[in-house]
Amino acid sequence: MSAEPTYTGITRRQFLKGGAITPIAFMLAGSGVATVYLRPADAQGFTLRPPGAIAAKRFLSACIRCGKCAQACPYRSIRMAGGEAGIGIGTPLITPREMPCYLCSDLPCIKACPSGALDKELKEIEKIRMGTAVIIDRESCLSIRGLRCEVCYRQCPLIDKAITIEPRHNTRTGEHTIMEPVVHKEKCVGCGICENSCVLPKPVIVVQKSVETQKDSYEF
């Protein structure tokens, strides 16, 4: 028997020319195109991820889409994104308006995550930073209008820490208090319970991307 390597009937030159160069060219071109077009890892806007999710863009590749976090969630708050999420397909997300994160003290979702996309170092719920609640429409917020609502405040699992009430005089009535809910970004974990409970048809308090806090200014 000979040691003829061309058992497939392809010579080495042929192999290199047709069998290797072309695919490699395709591979490189493909990566180039993908690199340009798949960049916007979070161009879809802010997605509320389960507790402990690492930085948005790294999360997309760190998450292996196994769905174990969603299966571990006792409230079914975590669901897996469908095709609408584009390249985020199959990643876990929380839609606070449907079901917010209720911050289980034992964090079963993080325990379930095999890949480290949900940070295993995170053990205390106070340190979760899924996002930050922001009052996006102050004109519509009932509490800021002077009504006694403050549902977001009372439902906040970190009441008096993440959301506090700043009372001020209601100049219009002259004898009532405006009890304004104020979100403290350095404490807010972004669980979305406030967004879930807001009584207005379009919630005026919503969870957005966490912004690093500037210590000496509140965004009143």
């Binding site: 490699i24 395709f26 591979m27 490189l28 493909g30 990566s31 993908a34 690199t35 798949l38 960049r39 890892a41 863009k57 790294r58 997309l60 590749s61 998450c63 292996i64 889409r65 769905g67 969603a70 299966q71 669901r79 897996m80 584009g86 390249i87 397909i89 199959g90």
Partner: peptide, 30 residues
Amino acid sequence: GLVLLVVAATGVPLFEVFSPIGIVSRAITF
């Protein structure tokens, strides 16, 4: 090679996005 290069360059896990395996599993579980 392509998916590994893309993920290294862009952070986008190309295979996960299109993987029919994941799609079938999620169709079953979720």
